[in-house]
Design a protein around this nucleic acid. Structure first.
Lengths: 200, 200, 200, 200
DNA sequence: ACTTAATCGAGACGGTACGTCTTGTCTTGAG
DNA sequence: CTCAAGACAAGACGTACCGTCTCGATTAAGT
């Protein structure tokens, strides 16, 4: 079995061109022809290695995401502070038009391409969410999170509102918002009494 | 000032054709030419009245949403039960491929068209969210929700995770999920003690 | 039987607008919509009274041609001089881009519309050619034209080359050309011997 | 310098389809879309290589005209007979609706497209007219044509009337007409006396 | 080094949809 | 009923991309 004689130089040029063009035009206006032209590459070279422009963007994102280890959250012992750090960073990323352009792009394609959606979920989303989940697990061990809380649901409670607000442009994405969200979510996870008893 | 002499018959045929086609093909495969052909209408008649196919879908959705009054939530006095009713319905809608097709479509276009996003937010999203917020406000008056809770944020806590899970296909959308989400969110809103004191 | 309640004001405005636009754009770019807009007239008013834009141009030309009597040739007794006068005028008309624009336009339409062709022939062309034929007949009576010459053919001998050269852009249309043509044609018509015997 | 990698198969299919369609519909009804569809070719392939449908027709005509050498006239020594042969053929071509359809088409476009007109003149018309002119030159050498006759003008004297009559539908195009025309034109060219003296 | 087969840049190809334009008909409301 | 205005169904325009294909030229193994 011979390794594919793929031109690494072309591969990098294509990914770079794709990200470049994304920052200049909207995603639907991003064409494979334009990527090929910008990268100085034949169209076939793109079609040979990627199924769609969504896949190109995905690879560009994964490529620039760096090592998976980088993703681990800090654990200062103060759960609230650590979550604030993460959610502030997330909010900042979504608020920055430059950074959110690629997220927007990949999200669009994801909505109409199940295969791509799966890959985005496994390669980009899950690692991030898992890192937060592990931090929550550590918090539970430290008695800062109620025993019965479903950690996956708790993670969604933290990130869902941000996606919702970003996606639907339903309000500003600020640090204060991130902090309020952390406070409210932590109230949901708080230990000290039965959560179900708390409601009438 | 003369009213535009618009043909209501054509308008209805176009909206119906758009929804029909959406249920047959994916959104990117939905073309204005196909809508015109199916509706038995000239292309120009679509371009004359709508800026994009996203706008056509939006109008179709708004048209079929019916009266704004229909949107008010039931108030049985049992907040948890009422929220479960709403979130179960929401989850069911997102889980149904037929029903979520239009939502998916409008969401795609929304990501690349700020003007459309604004209209979707104001005409479709806000009325729904407001209805839930008003139910929460009633709950607060009844002492079932903590005084200090930001009701808008609370609403996002309920719907954000669902959008997040649907959008990123990060898990199944079931009744049990809706119920768990209601429980966790209500824990966050629960009255009876200072929420901030509850955390170390 | 009531006379058609036709608006003379609109009719004139349409014909004027058509000629105006013809001098500004090429004939294929002349649209009925533009004529209607320029004339401040509804499109239907044009379609009501004319079958095609060719018919509009034809009526404009006939309208501006004036009385049929104007067409009679001068008869100074000098046939050659009189023919030079006519052919020089004809050549000048074809050479002038402004004047030949309408001729070009009507010719185009004529090539694809038999009915229009017939009307152009009868209302515009035949009267002109007849005037020349009558001058030739007078010349024959005066002994300047051979008895056996078919006068219709002779007329074509005078105008055919001009049309040919204009139509196919096969050379300049100058006074000298007109004069040479008159000389050559008159040689063909010259009396004094049997024409057929003249050739070996 | 690499030769353009043009698909000869497509080129032939396009020219054939254009001629086919021309014989079925009128020229203004001939659309590029229809040519592309009939030829089994993308529209862009036509637009890539031709500026207009007129240019397509021109190339089809030039392509089918064959070798330029084919154009040389017979020289039996009998000038009148040879010219009759040519003019009878010309008249027959114009009289045949099938054959004159393409001529009509190219003529229409020629009237509104100077560049096309030039190419038609140089590639189609001039070679034909030159062939006749050379026959006349041979006739002059043989003493059958007057020394002072401008041969280009003489050629126009032969073909101009035919174009005129065809273009303006000003009479039937028959063999008798061709013969009469040859006789009259030869009278104009006849040697044996000063042409100018012949007229009073 | 030589061979050889896949990959490369380039871009033509058959298609499809775009958004615009014009056609000829139809509809509305003012005069 | 005619008119100006302009919406309508129809469909061609010329352009932009799609994804496939064909062309030499380059390149990197495996001999």
């Amino acid at each position: 079995m011979t390794a594919p004689r793929r031109n690494e130089r072309s591969r990098r040029a294509i990914l770079a061109a794709a990200l470049e063009l994304l920052s200049e035009t909207s995603y639907p206006d991003l064409t494979i022809e334009a990527i090929a032209a910008r990268a100085g590459v034949g169209k076939q070279t793109i079609y040979r290695w990627w199924r769609s422009k969504g896949m190109v963007i995905l690879e560009a994102l994964v490529d620039s995401a760096g090592e998976p280890g980088d993703m681990a959250l800090p654990d200062t012992g103060d759960l609230r502070a650590d979550l604030r750090t993460v959610l502030r960073a997330t909010v900042a990323e979504f608020a920055d038009p430059r950074l959110s352009a690629t997220t927007r792009a990949i999200t669009i394609e994801t909505l109409a391409d199940d295969d791509l959606a799966e890959q985005v979920r496994d390669q980009l989303l899950r690692p991030q969410l898992s890192a937060v989940r592990e931090r929550l697990r550590a918090g539970r061990r430290a008695g800062q999170v109620h025993e019965s809380v479903d950690l996956d649901l708790a993670v969604e409670l933290l990130f869902g509102p941000i996606y919702h607000r970003w996606l639907l442009r339903n309000g500003p994405l600020t640090e204060a918002y991130a902090d309020d969200l952390v406070d409210l979510a932590m109230a949901a996870m708080a230990p000290g009494r039965s959560r179900l008893e708390a409601a009438p």
